[in-house]
Structure formats: structure tokens, C-alpha cells
Design a protein around this nucleic acid. Structure first.
Lengths: 245, 245
DNA sequence: GACGCGCCTTGACCCAGATCAAATGACAGA
DNA sequence: TCTGTCATTTGATCTGGGTCAAGGCGCGTC
């Protein structure tokens, strides 16, 4: 189930230039190549449970995963959305701090933790890249804190759509010119966990944005954005010109 | 105003073993020593404005600073609370992403950004420690996201007190045995910005916790905690035994 | 083609926390 | 001692989003 292992040359890897290996030279890459292995997960499958011993770290190659925290009474908050090239796990820590769940079919490039840590100690390019990625994640987490603490439900939905649009745009090479479209990788309930709302409120606010012409829907996962500036305005973000990437 | 420069030997520095320099050997330390300088800020003074060019990075030596984000209409969210040994600034970035404000009188150990980046490239111990600290901050940010997204006002207040108690306890060497006490480093308004509440709600919930005997107050900044487990319960956290540190 | 099963939407009502407003303290300066 | 300022508390009211409860809609199965 989790071992229809594809095996890919690093040089052909779709995340070669964005993942933790991005800065590695060919010789460093071949060292990584020796200890890597692929694992596949089905949509809905749990990759790691919070509190479990974590024997590997790795990168998302394809698909989407989420990081969530759960309180004893079941309240859940998503604390990370992992897209291709994002790193999972924390070198130097024994147990997982969050639940990691595949929301789509997922392929991960894994390294057993110990060998990876050893390699990291001797390969500054890996540690450097990991620092850079962690700093980016910290910035994203802080932007998210503003969203959770201060934005209205409508602003939260608009912000989420722009965040996903931005991240998708930065992954897809070609822009399909014409109207911007986004496929939501999350169910209504997952969006609610992402945004600190209930699924009913998510549904209502999406309907409201649709009624007001800010977005349009085909099916309930596919969104088109006729006017990105309008959406950014609804998101309440500093109008930074709406630069993607 | 900002240059009553104390000058301290690194070896006598109170944050020597927790800050970004924690892992440095004596020779590495003397390189840092050559490029460091101290700056003092008064309570209330702004250290850096979001968007400004950032010509230095550094560590909080004494005092407390906050990281906040502000929306155009004035809504504010604190996204970081900086205690002694915490690092300010991001190597590799030109401009500040957040407002940094001194909430008490503050002394920082600063490095001009360029020399620090150069030193970091040749001194893995610095980069390693910075990665470790950044990962810790990311964990803290994610715990905070759960608080902002899912906790009630009462749980938020209780959580904040435990967070501050935990951080204070990890700094203070000796435990004063007897009842646990905490000095809140923030005004009611700052707490509100921290917790995603209004200052009125903060005040009401503190009064409620006091009335219920969970905490007691002397003045409005000094809190005693008769029963830490009780407070942890109110915070809604996983009851992890309430280990400080 | 009708049944069941996940999802999602919509409606009706409620309540935690926001908002607006006033009162209370705690100081610092005159 | 009085007075102004600023932080905090407390009260009264309002409201955005939560809660509870029906439906609707696609879709795979028998």
C-alpha cells in the first residue's frame, strides 16, 4: 500500500530545485541519492501521528499533505499545508509534534532520520537550504496568525484562496493565460480547520463571495477568479500589487 | 538615546549559552565579538518598522520586545514575543517583515547584517544554532495558531499565563520555591493583540480567573498561581504533566 | 432506478466576545 | 491637596459566527 516505490533519478526530480536538496552539488546529491527512498500514501491516509516516534524525514514530491493539531475534546487546527517540495520532520527531534495526513495521493522522498542528520552535519548546503525553508515557513505561519487572530470569516476565505492561488502559480511553470483558476485541495471541513471556522461558515462565505461575483464555482472544488485585485481587497491584505510569487 | 553602549565580554554575557552564539567555540566567539555592538532602547520605543531596510540583526540581551503585524485599518496581531536570547532579523532578507517594539527597556546585541551573513557562511555552528532556534520558533508559532484558531477567551488567557510562566522559569536560574509567580510583561492591550481578543475581554477573563481562584493578582501585572495543574487544565492543553522547560 | 453514503448547502436560533460607554484607580506634576 | 492623564475595570447592548437541524446533490452499487 505504501510501497509502490517509484524510483527516480534526483536529476529528473520535479522538486530538485525547490526542496531541501536545492543547493546541493552533484556529488552531494549522489550522497543523498544513496539514502533516499520513496513512499506513496493514498488520499486520506495518515503519514505520521503526533507523538509517534519519527524514523524518517523527507520532502513532498507530488500531492498535498496537511499538518494538524488536535485538542483532547476534538477541536482541530491545521498548522501547515504541505505542497510539493515542502519538508516534513524535524532533524534532532525524536517524536512527531503534529499529525501529518495525505489529503490527495501523495509521494514522498524520504530519508531515515539518523543518516540524514549525519549527512546534514557534513553538508552545509543542506542545512543552509533547510534554514531558508524554515524561515519561509515561519513567515507563512506568522501571516496565518494574523489571519486567525484578526480577520473576519469572509476575509479568511478570500485570503485562503489567494494563498493557494499564489502557491499554485509558483509551482506551475506556464501560466494558462486568461482567467485565473484554482483547484481547492481541501474539503470544506479541512478548510474550516485551516481557517479556524466551522464548515458551515466556510460554505456560507464561499456562497456569499460567489453571489457577490468575487469568484465563480464549477463543481465545488474548482474556482475561477475574474478579478484578482478584487479578491485581494476582500482578503484585507496590504495591497502589494498582487504579485504572484 | 540608543547608545548608552554597555560593553560586555561575550564570556560574561547572560545569554551566552542560549543565543545564536550558543554553540560557538572561543575562537568563533572572538570573531563575533569583533563585529558586535550593543544598542539600548527605552520601553515603548520602536526597534524596527515593518518594511524598513534592515541593516542589522541581533539578539535580545535583556528586556522584552514584541513582533507585530498591522492591517491598514489598524487591526493588530502580535506574532512573536521576544525574550532574552531570542534572535531578531532574518539573514538574507533586505527589509523587516514586522514591527519590532521594545515593551520594556531593552538591550540588544547587534551585528551589521552583511558581516554577520559572511561569518555565518564560514561558521556552521552559528547556522546550526540559528536553524535550531528557528525550528523552535516555528513550533511556538504553531502552538499559537491552535490558540488563535480554536481556543476560547478564557483558555487563551490561561494559555498565555502558562506560556509566560514556562519561559520565565526557563530563564530564571533558581526557582524561588513556594508559590509560582509571574510578572506579565504586557499591558492589557498588548495581551489582546497577542491573543486575538479585545482589551476588554482580556480584562474580564483575568477578573473571572481571579474570582474563580485560578490565579491571584497583586497590582495588575503581578500574578500568583496557587495550583499550576488547575491553570493548565483551564488552558485546555494536553496535560503533559506540566513540566516547565 | 432507487438506495445509501459522503459531501455540501441552507435555514433558524443562540451565545461568546465585540462594541460603546462610563466609572475607578494610580500616579506624576503643580 | 488638587488635577489631568492613562491604564484598567465594569456595565449594557449588539452581532458574527457557532450550533443544531433539514434538505440537496452527485455517485457508486446492486
Amino acid at each position: 500500500m505504501q510501497d509502490h516505490s517509484v524510483h527516480l533519478q534526483c536529476s529528473d526530480c520535479p522538486i530538485r530545485h525547490r526542496a531541501v536538496c536545492a543547493r546541493c552539488e552533484t556529488d552531494e546529491l549522489s550522497e543523498l541519492e544513496q539514502i533516499k527512498y520513496y513512499r506513496s500514501f493514498q488520499a486520506g491516509q495518515t503519514v505520521i501521528w503526533s507523538g509517534d516516534r519519527m524514523e524518517f524525514v523527507g520532502s513532498v514530491v507530488t500531492g498535498i499533505a496537511t499538518l494538524t493539531q488536535t485538542m483532547e475534546d476534538g477541536r482541530r487546527q491545521m498548522v501547515g499545508l504541505l505542497l510539493p517540495s515542502d519538508f516534513v520532520g524535524r532533524p534532532g527531534r525524536m517524536t512527531a509534534a503534529y499529525d501529518v495526513t495525505a489529503t490527495t495521493d501523495l509521494v514522498m522522498c524520504c530519508f531515515r532520520k539518523k543518516p540524514f542528520e549525519d549527512l546534514m552535519a557534513t553538508t552545509p548546503h543542506i542545512a543552509q537550504r533547510l534554514l531558508e525553508m524554515t524561515l519561509d515557513e515561519l513567515d507563512a505561519a506568522r501571516e496565518w496568525m494574523l489571519l486567525l487572530g484578526r480577520k473576519t470569516a469572509r476575509e479568511k476565505i478570500a485570503s485562503m484562496i489567494t494563498i493557494i492561488a499564489r502557491r499554485e502559480a509558483s509551482l506551475q511553470s506556464a501560466k494558462p493565460n486568461g482567467m485565473l483558476t484554482v483547484d481547492l485541495p481541501l474539503s470544506r471541513e479541512e478548510m474550516a480547520d485551516y481557517l479556524g471556522l466551522t464548515l458551515e461558515t466556510v460554505s456560507r462565505q464561499i456562497s456569499a463571495l460567489k453571489k457577490d461575483g468575487v469568484i465563480s464555482l464549477e463543481g465545488n472544488r474548482h474556482i475561477s477568479i475574474p478579478d484578482l485585485d478584487r479578491l485581494l481587497e476582500e482578503a484585507g491584505d496590504d495591497s502589494d500589487g498582487g504579485m504572484l510569487v
